[in-house]
Design a protein around this nucleic acid. Structure first.
Length: 278
DNA sequence: CGATTTCCCTGGCCGC
DNA sequence: TGCGGCCAGGGAAATC
C-alpha cells in the first residue's frame, strides 16, 4: 500500500518531467472518484508536491491556479509512458490497460497513466489550497520531517485522544503519511504497544525518531513493494527486504526472539512483539 | 465534536 | 480444475 515513502518516490520522479508541460487531453474512468481528472485539460503544470500520502500537482488554468489531488489508495499506480514514435497520441479513446482509471496526455506526447485495480484511490480537482471537500487532507497533521515537529509536539497531539496509538497514527492527524506498514515498523522500533491508549513523553520522542527512521529508509530503498506498488517508471521498491516487524507474525522477534504476534486492531492487521513492546 | 461503524473494491489464496 | 468464501485495508460517509 502506498504510504509516504512510495508517494515521495513517485513525486521525485514526476517532479523531473511534469513541470512546464501542458495537459492536452485526458480520459477518466466513469466514476465520481476519477472523473475530476478531466478538469485538468488545458492546464499548465507548475509543480509536483506532496502532503502525507496525497500527491498535489499544481496546475494553472485560465480560470486560475488549481491542484490535481491524487491519492493512490491501496493499489494505485502512477506511471509515465513515453511518447509513441508514430505520435498515436490522443488518450480520449480510453484505457490502454483494463485497470487504468485516468490517463493524461501532455504536450510533449508523454502520457501519465493512473492505474488502480481496486479503486480505493481517488482524484480530485480543486482551487489551490482549497481542501474543504477533503476532510482528511484539510485536517492533515504536520509532515514528519517538518522541523517544527518534535517529540513534545507529537506527545501533545497523542494526548488529545484516548484511542489506540496506532489508530491515531493511521488517522493522519498527529503526523501525516504513516500507514499500516510503517506504523507497525515504527512502533516496534520505539518499543510501544500498538494498542496503548497513552504514551509517555519519552515514548513519544522515541516514536517520532522511529517514524523518521522507517520513512527515511523507505525512501532510500525506493518504497515497499508487497504486491502492487511500482514507481513512476514501473519499477518495484526494495524496502520489503528491510522490514523488521510488518508481515513477520509468528516469526521470532529480531530483538528478543519471542514469536511476533499478529492480530486485528481497530480493523487493521497488526504485528507486534508482546514481550518487548510495552 | 469525537468515537465508532459501514462501505467501497477485486485479485489472490485456501479448502473441498 | 472449479468454485464458494474470505482476506487485504485508506479514507469517506453515516451513525452513535
Amino acid at each position: 500500500m502506498p504510504e509516504l515513502p512510495e508517494v515521495e518516490t513517485i513525486r521525485r520522479q514526476l517532479a523531473l518531467t511534469l513541470p512546464g508541460r501542458t495537459v492536452v487531453d485526458s480520459w477518466a474512468f466513469d466514476h465520481p472518484k476519477f472523473t475530476p481528472a478531466s478538469e485538468s485539460v488545458g492546464g499548465h503544470i507548475h509543480e509536483v508536491r506532496r502532503r502525507g500520502k496525497y500527491l498535489l500537482i499544481e496546475i494553472t488554468r485560465p480560470d486560475g491556479p488549481h491542484e490535481l489531488i491524487i491519492h493512490l489508495g491501496m493499489t494505485g499506480q502512477l506511471r509515465t509512458e513515453a511518447a509513441e514514435p508514430g505520435g498515436v497520441g490522443g488518450v480520449g479513446g480510453g484505457p490502454r490497460d483494463p485497470y487504468d482509471r485516468a490517463r493524461f496526455e501532455l504536450d510533449d506526447g508523454t502520457v501519465l497513466a493512473y492505474r488502480d485495480v481496486r479503486r480505493f484511490g481517488r482524484i480530485a480537482w480543486t482551487p489551490r489550497g482549497h481542501y474543504d471537500g477533503h476532510p482528511t487532507l484539510a485536517a492533515l497533521g504536520p509532515e514528519p520531517f517538518d522541523h517544527a515537529l518534535d517529540g513534545a509536539a507529537l506527545w501533545a497531539a497523542l494526548r488529545g485522544s484516548r484511542r489506540a496509538v496506532k489508530t491515531q497514527l493511521l488517522s493522519q492527524r498527529p503526523v501525516a503519511g504513516v500507514g499500516n506498514i510503517y506504523a507497525d515498523e515504527a512502533l516496534w522500533i520505539a518499543r510501544i504497544r500498538p494498542a496503548a491508549r497513552t504514551v509517555t513523553r519519552p515514548q513519544a520522542v522515541r516514536l517520532l525518531e522511529a517514524i523518521r527512521s522507517v520513512l527515511s529508509a523507505g525512501i532510500e530503498h525506493g518504497g515497499t513493494t508487497l504486491r502492487d506498488y511500482v514507481d513512476a517508471q514501473g519499477r518495484s521498491g526494495e524496502n520489503q527486504h528491510h522490514l523488521l516487524c510488518y508481515g513477520r507474525g509468528g516469526k521470532p522477534c529480531i530483538r528478543c526472539g519471542e514469536p511476533l504476534r499478529h492480530g486485528v486492531l481497530d480493523g487493521r492487521g497488526t504485528t507486534w512483539c508482546r514481550t518487548c513492546q510495552r
